[in-house]
Simulated assay, not measured.
Amino acid sequence: MSTVTIPLGPTEVRCPICLDVFDWDETDLFTFRDGAYVPLDLSGVGDPVKRNDEMIGAYRRCPNPSADMAERHYLPISYASYGPPLVIGFIGRTESGKSHLLAAIVSEIERGGLGPLGFTAVPVDEEAHRAYWRQYVASLVDEGRAIEHTARVQSDAMVTFTDALVVSDGRRQRAVAFFDVAGDDLVARTRSMRFVLALDALIFVVDPEYALRQNAPSDGDATFETVMARLRAQPGLTDRLPVALAVSKSDLYRFEQPAARWYRRPSLSAYLDGRAEPTEIRDESRDAYAFLYARGARAWLRPFETFRRATLHFVSATGSKAVTDDRGDTFDKVFPRGVRPRRVLDPLAAIFAMSGLLGEDAAKEVGT
């Protein structure tokens, strides 16, 4: 990933932490030094080269206009420097594979996986991105170790994005932020879970191991229902927000149709030179819908039936099932054959298309 310049311009942004809306400008800038946020004064820096260099790694302090949070919070300067960011939330129960899917997505992006869409990507916050990479992505992809369950947060804690990238097609740039919190937190209607109201798109992760088992709950995934209830309470959100349903762990069904048909297709096969092929996307959505419906998992399809713009996808973040490594003093879950993600970028590409990043034609046709 290469570096980018930081062109700031006034825009209105909703803070994903406190949900307040404020003007994004060059006021209230900070840098993070020695474990603390320190004011960054650029009033005497007129040279644009020096100014851009000073802005790398800077943060904008949220003014929290409603004054409903005691703790100050900060956002990386690239978060909204290119207009309002695209904020994507991963929704699903604990053990559904949300964290593995996000780590696999970030890994594939780092390897240039957005190329078929015409996009490159750089971190919004280099230091935070590298910390996420070392703790989660490298552990999974390089070492073949399963990611531990996402830690729960306190009911009034500040929740911020897990990672964020600036994507560019050479003409436009936009920040894309990913939220991944514990499934047990998502089912709680706490103040900390208000971040779902700041989301611009959602990826619902369907765990087929759970959804297709004989004694699966008839009411589906409780995290789906809780999040959708919050969104339905806000007029217009279910019509506006694009949604992708990712059937995770599809490697378990790679010899069964229709999963086998899609599992063997190359990643992003529905895209050419950044353009979406709506027919292929609809075909996969149809097959994934039928796959879940025919096996008694209709309750997991409610997001598809609730939101006006939605797609379904067969994905596998790892390519195989983890086993317990009981050698030595630890009992970690590992992937002895390594990790081989399959089609993990397709749900993200569908979100990009429905959000307008791939042009007006894709925004009108994909997910309808």
Rank of each mutant, 00 (worst) to 15 (best):
T223S: 15
G236R: 12
Y136R: 00
V87D: 15
R343D: 03
G274Q: 06
G9T: 11
V141G: 00
A229H: 13
R111F: 02
G296A: 02
L312D: 08
H149T: 14
M1Q: 09
L186C: 02
I351P: 02
G328V: 02
Y263C: 05
V339K: 13
S192Y: 10
L42Q: 08
R189L: 00
S99R: 00
E95N: 08
R61H: 07
R130P: 02
S320M: 11
M69A: 07
F204K: 09
S320W: 08
L42T: 06
D163C: 13
A216D: 14
P39G: 02
V106T: 04
A353Q: 06
V206I: 05
E143N: 10
P116W: 07
D185A: 04
R134D: 00
F204P: 12
V124M: 08
T150E: 10
P217R: 15
G144C: 03
R286P: 01
D41Y: 14
D184P: 07
A294T: 14
Y253S: 04
C18R: 05
L117V: 10
A177G: 10
R130G: 01
P116E: 12
R213A: 12
D169I: 05
Y253E: 07
P116M: 11
E71N: 14
G183L: 03
E277G: 03
T160N: 13
D23L: 15
G92F: 01
G57M: 08
A350R: 07
H313L: 09
P76W: 04
S168A: 13
L241G: 06
L272Y: 01
E277H: 05
A353Y: 09
F195C: 04
R213W: 12
L114G: 05
D326L: 13
A201V: 01
R213G: 07
R60F: 02
G118R: 06
T94A: 12
W300L: 01
G89K: 03
W24L: 09
L8E: 12
A164R: 10
I203D: 05
I281L: 07
E360Y: 06
R152W: 05
R174L: 10
I56H: 14
A349L: 05
V181Q: 07
N215T: 08
R111N: 07
P336F: 06
A244F: 06
F119D: 14
R264S: 09
I77N: 01
S248F: 08
A151C: 05
R308K: 15
L212V: 11
A146N: 03
V106K: 02
M158A: 13
D221K: 12
E143C: 04
E284Q: 11
I203R: 04
T238S: 06
L42N: 09
A363C: 01
S155T: 10
L199N: 12
T3H: 13
D47V: 12
K50R: 15
P258C: 08
I17A: 10
L245P: 12
T306Y: 03
V176D: 04
E365Y: 02
V38R: 15
L40W: 10
A211H: 11
D287K: 05
C18F: 02
R340D: 03
E26Y: 06
T306S: 09
R298D: 10
D326A: 15
Y37K: 01
R14C: 11
Y136W: 00
Q154V: 05
R240F: 01
G296M: 00
